[in-house]
């Protein structure tokens, strides 16, 4: 247990605060460098003019979106596989889905802005756009499903199955939307002779580093939040168990307190509220069990009014 952690029964918090802080500051610095190069140093494009600057955000953000959903599918598959089943994989899956959804929304927004300036429309039925929109809708469904199930095991199983089916649907969707229509620009960086050079290429690579660090920082924190939620649930469970144990201790003959008869909140005269010890019962025995029935035809006695 590390110094920054309170005593708890749940899983330990991963990553040291220093690590997450270093990651966060690195991400911020890389973002600042990308913004500086992208807005001031990098020249306008010959064809696209100033519009090229959105490419210092959009491709990197889109890549992180797919990495997030890929990690979600990987974590879900590993959780479903009996030999590798561990809560860690489930945490990785939910973190990937949630952070991936944020990047997916950013992809759709930046892509839409770029499309308005390039194609003249905010939205077009391009395969990649359509697929990304469907992915976003699926990820929202995945997250809603997780929130709808209380039992951890059932939640992990259902969401893992959905994530794997989602990944398979994406493959089918990819072919469907590609056959249907294709307008989107092809690969820019990963081709034998990249069409970007100099400061443009450097800025694009810097954007991948920056958004990669932001993605990693968000993943680490989302994973930690998941661990904290598990610990909180464990603590709630332990508190509920302790409360039950103390109630049982009150009921035990000769136990602490005076039994149910000593508890004002259990006093009453309705059925099942017979709390006072019956005549002849040993001291301390009250409420339930022998002697708890009311005298025939009589009003039940209560311990405290």
């Amino acid at each position: 247990m590390r110094q920054d952690e309170p005593a708890s029964l749940g899983p330990a918090l991963p990553f040291r605060p220093l690590t997450t802080r270093a990651l966060g500051w690195s991400a911020l610095a890389a973002l600042a460098v990308t913004a500086w190069w992208g807005l001031w140093v990098s020249p306008p494009d010959v064809v696209q003019g100033q519009l090229v600057r959105i490419l210092y955000v959009h491709p990197a953000v889109a890549t992180m979106c797919y990495v997030g959903f890929g990690l979600c599918a990987l974590g879900s598959l590993a959780w479903l596989w009996p030999r590798t089943r561990s809560p860690r994989w489930d945490r990785l899956a939910v973190a990937g889905a949630e952070v991936g959804s944020v990047f997916c929304l950013a992809t759709l927004v930046t892509g839409s802005i770029w499309g308005r300036a390039t194609w003249g429309v905010w939205w077009t039925w391009d395969p990649r756009l359509t697929l990304t929109a469907i992915l976003f809708a699926m990820s929202l469904g995945y997250l809603a499903l997780r929130r709808g199930i209380d039992k951890p095991q059932a939640r992990s199983l259902a969401s893992s199955v959905v994530a794997v089916l989602m990944a398979l649907t994406v493959v089918v969707d990819h072919y469907a939307t590609s056959w249907w229509n294709s307008l989107h620009q092809g690969t820019t960086l990963l081709q034998p002779n990249p069409t970007v050079h100099g400061w443009q290429l450097a800025t694009m690579l810097a954007s991948f580093v920056a958004f990669g660090l932001v993605f990693a920082w968000m993943m680490v924190h989302r994973y930690r939040v998941e661990v904290m939620e598990e610990r909180y649930e464990d603590e709630l469970l332990q508190a509920a168990l302790a409360a039950r144990r103390s109630e049982v201790a009150l009921l035990e003959p000769g136990g602490p307190g005076t039994g149910w008869a000593g508890r004002e909140d259990w006093a009453g005269d309705g059925p099942g509220r017979r709390l006072a010890p019956a005549p002849g019962s040993p001291p301390g025995q009250a409420g339930v069990g022998a002697g708890a029935l009311p005298p025939a035809g009589g009003r039940p006695e209560v311990g405290v009014r």
């Binding site: 809708a137 699926m138 809603a144 499903l145 089916l165 989602m166 649907t169 089918v172 469907a176």
Partner: peptide
């Protein structure tokens, strides 16, 4: 409410 949310995107293809 969850069923349409989950199923509709899946049925898109």
């Amino acid at each position: 409410t969850l069923l349409p949310l989950l199923l509709a995107p899946v049925l898109a293809p």
